[in-house]
C-alpha cells in the first residue's frame, strides 16, 4: 500500500516527465495548473495518465476545486 508521500512523488515524477518540467521545480503544494502551465484539456490528459499509472478510476468531478498535487494525491489514494 503506497503512502500519501509515495503517491505524491509518483505524480510529480509523471507530471515532470510528461510536461517536461524539471522535477526539482515541483513540490507537493504547487498549483499544478500554474506550475505545469496546463489548461483543462491537458488536465484531462494528466487525469488519464494518472488513472493508468495507479490503476484507478478518478471521476473528474472529484477534481472540482483541486489545484495542488497534494489534494490530487489524496483523491487518488482514496481509490487505490
Amino acid at each position: 500500500m503506497r503512502t500519501l508521500e509515495q503517491v505524491m512523488d509518483e505524480i510529480l515524477d509523471l507530471a515532470a516527465n510528461h510536461f517536461t518540467v524539471p522535477r526539482n521545480e515541483l513540490s507537493y503544494d504547487d498549483d499544478f495548473f500554474k506550475k505545469l502551465g496546463i489548461d483543462s484539456l491537458q488536465a484531462l490528459d494528466l487525469l488519464t495518465r494518472l488513472e493508468q499509472r495507479f490503476g484507478v478510476e478518478l471521476p473528474d468531478y472529484e477534481l472540482q476545486g483541486v489545484t495542488d498535487f497534494r489534494a490530487l494525491a489524496e483523491r487518488i489514494k482514496a481509490r487505490i
Partner: peptide
C-alpha cells in the same frame, strides 16, 4: 446561465465539472 458560465469562464478548466 449554464452556457454563460461556460462561455465567459476565464479559468483554466471549463471542461472540468
Amino acid at each position: 446561465s449554464g452556457l454563460r458560465r461556460f462561455v465567459e469562464s476565464t479559468d483554466a478548466h471549463p471542461y472540468l465539472p
